[in-house]
């Protein structure tokens, strides 16, 4: 009996410690970033271009912010519609047949694709073969490919979470499936779908490996021209660190990037959560 008690207490202690450790890791990461990064952030840092020698020791990161925003927008506009269409197929038209099984598995595999492989593929296809060069377009396509499965999975789950009765009521009225889809299902699932897209945007904003080889430049004004390279926050962070430019600026950049992503993620989570509670 007492041995069992001991084992019980031990297990309980281990499980609680694991939970505690998780909390410490999370708070540690955020706390340390804020602690080291906050002094670098001011208006100039956000609104000026990198200056100084080597470039980046002075000034700010505006072109990197602009570049990252361009990349996100481009990636979403490329991935959103096909992703939504695939999700609609999986949720509404596929009936657990072999085809839906194959597509589901493919989407899962694409979600697990190493991002450097996506980058490699897009480099060879878009940058080299199609002659786009190192450009915003190539990078946007790479990121679009990367976030496509995220859009599909989140949108599919949002659609599947819509109350089943709506479909039955609609069908029994004799209206077509696409009518129900447009009038009822999509509006009902909209918060979840938008949440998923925001999640995908955050994913795209943080990705480094694919843009390293397809779009990013160490210094450029980031005009937004589709055939010009841009700067991007994650790559800028990598350069600031790996070329040993400035550790302070690197922490500042990391903090800006993480804050941007956290905001996106929190909004996404709220939208998706709210939907789930009603459903």
């Amino acid at each position: 009996m007492s041995l069992r008690r001991l084992i019980d207490t031990l297990c309980l202690a281990i499980f609680w410690l694991a939970g505690l450790l998780l909390l410490i890791i999370l708070l540690g990461i955020l706390g340390y970033l804020i602690y080291r990064g906050h002094s670098a952030i001011n208006l100039e840092f956000l609104l000026a271009s990198p200056k100084g020698l080597p470039l980046g020791t002075e000034g700010g990161i505006l072109p990197a912010i602009k570049g990252t925003l361009c990349l996100i927008m481009l990636a979403v506009s490329i991935a959103a519609l096909p992703g939504l269409a695939t999700a609609v197929y999986l949720a509404e038209y596929a009936h657990k047949n072999v085809i839906s099984q194959i597509i589901n598995t493919t989407v899962q595999c694409m979600a697990g694709l190493p991002s450097i492989v996506t980058g490699l593929f897009c480099y060879a296809l878009f940058v080299v073969r199609m002659g786009f060069g190192i450009s915003l377009l190539a990078g946007g396509l790479a990121l679009g490919m990367m976030i496509f499965p995220v859009v599909v999975v989140t949108a599919r789950d949002a659609l599947l979470a819509v109350n089943k009765h709506y479909r039955i009521v609609g069908t029994s009225l004799g209206v077509s499936k696409s009518y129900i889809l447009v009038r009822i299902l999509l509006p009902q699932a909209a918060p979840g779908i938008i949440g998923g897209i925001l999640l995908a945007m955050g994913y795209a904003a943080g990705a480094t490996a694919p843009i390293m080889v397809t779009v990013a430049a160490i210094a450029t004004p980031s005009t937004g021209d589709l055939f010009q390279p841009v700067m991007a926050l994650p790559y800028h962070l990598y350069i600031l660190f790996s070329q040993q430019v400035s550790l302070d600026k690197a922490y500042g950049t990391a903090l800006v990037l993480v804050s941007l992503l956290l905001i996106l993620n929190v909004i996404a989570m709220c939208l998706r959560h709210q939907k789930r509670r009603e459903g």
């Binding site: 999370l26 990461i29 340390y32 480094t208 490996a209 962070l237 993480v258």
Partner: peptide, 23 residues
Amino acid sequence: LRPAINLLTGIPSVVYGFLGATV
């Protein structure tokens, strides 16, 4: 904790790498 874990997946790998390398 559950949303916090979701947020951990949202932190990009370059930041993890950077923190790992400096700390």
